[in-house]
């Protein structure tokens, strides 16, 4: 475990001056993640907020080799980079140790890039995939994705008079990636820097593919104050909406157990995208969300061999 002082002294591979919104969780997640790398790292990024705000020609915020190709293919792209590395290394044309990191938002990971991700993980490339999950297509203007939570208002699931936000619950991508049987899968968020850095460090350290799902705020899509970005993520953990856990060689482990499990409304009420649920007409949806969180939390505890909360 590194100390904050040690991490602060490491070079910033994603520099300031990029054009992400104030309070955006994505660059925070990536700055922390890159601090976990002990060797040079080649980064690939799916089309999305992180990519468009960091590489506006003729500028780049990346002080490490970077490639963006398209929306749905970052896993395949980095798998090709890693294959080139293995080939050139075997031929003696390169002798450095280099790490490979693919990054996508939830749109590029849960949805359009899911096949590419699944394929790359199954093939066993020595790479880390990080999803910065801000729970909707934020780059195109807050459209729903399969990561959007039940009840959230987005521009394609607006809170209307007959449709109160997104009617479906979110896809549990972290569990799906664990089902790939890859050496390391983890879920973390930007409010828990130590948990995040430790997990990404483990992800880089394993031989073979690793997947880390990082809950990251979008202050516009979540309708929060930029200064609350970190705190909102902390409450997501405290309410067990976004538990922190890892799956190492098939073994599930809770990395943080809240002392007291707060009601999920504590998380929902901080965000404008759930505002419409706090009405008499929609209050039953709050109960549905709580029931869903409870069920998934109990399931996670069971998988992790923990006692019921």
């Amino acid at each position: 475990m590194a100390t904050l002082r040690e991490l602060a002294q490491k070079d910033e591979l994603l520099t300031g001056g990029h054009r992400a919104c104030a309070g955006c969780g994505a660059p925070v997640a990536l700055r922390m993640a890159l601090k976990a790398a002990d060797t040079p790292v080649v980064v690939g990024c799916a089309t999305g907020c992180l990519e468009v705000t960091t590489t506006i020609y003729p500028y780049t915020a990346w002080k490490t080799p970077f490639i963006h190709s398209a929306f749905e293919n970052v896993a395949a792209t980095i798998s090709g980079v890693e294959a080139a590395y293995r080939s050139l290394k075997r031929q003696g044309k390169i002798n450095r140790e280099i790490q490979f990191l693919a990054v996508g938002g939830d749109g590029g990971t849960y949805d359009i890039g899911f096949q590419s991700l699944s394929g790359a993980m199954e093939r066993g490339h020595d790479m880390v995939y990080i999803c910065y999950d801000n729970q909707a297509y934020m780059n195109t203007g807050i459209q729903r994705s399969s990561a959007t939570p039940l009840g959230a208002a987005t521009t394609t699931t607006p809170a209307g008079t007959v449709m109160p936000g997104k009617p479906q619950t979110r896809k549990d991508l972290t569990a799906i990636m664990a089902a790939h049987g890859i050496p390391y899968v983890a879920q973390t968020t930007i409010s828990h820097w130590n948990d995040l850095v430790t997990k990404v460090k483990k992800a880089f350290a394993v031989k073979g593919p690793a997947f880390v799902n990082i809950l990251a705020t979008c202050r516009l899509g979540w309708q929060i104050h930029p200064a609350d970005s970190i705190e909102v993520c902390r409450v997501a953990v405290d309410t067990c909406f976004w538990p922190l856990f890892e799956v190492e060689n098939g073994k599930w482990r809770l990395t943080h157990k809240p002392r007291e499990k707060k009601p999920v409304v504590e998380w929902l009420k901080r965000q404008g995208r759930f505002k419409h649920l706090f009405t008499d007409q929609n209050r039953h949806i709050l109960d549905e969300i709580q029931a869903d969180v409870d069920r998934k939390w109990e399931e996670l505890l069971r998988r992790c061999g923990e006692g019921s909360s």
Partner: peptide, 25 residues
């Protein structure tokens, strides 16, 4: 001495080749 990447689609085939080519292969 080729590293052969048996991808899951043609979209990924060319995507991987783009990555490999950008990596100097």
């Amino acid at each position: 001495h080729t590293e052969f990447v048996p991808v899951e689609s043609e979209h990924s085939a060319l995507s991987a080749v783009v990555g490999a080519s950008a990596a100097g292969a």
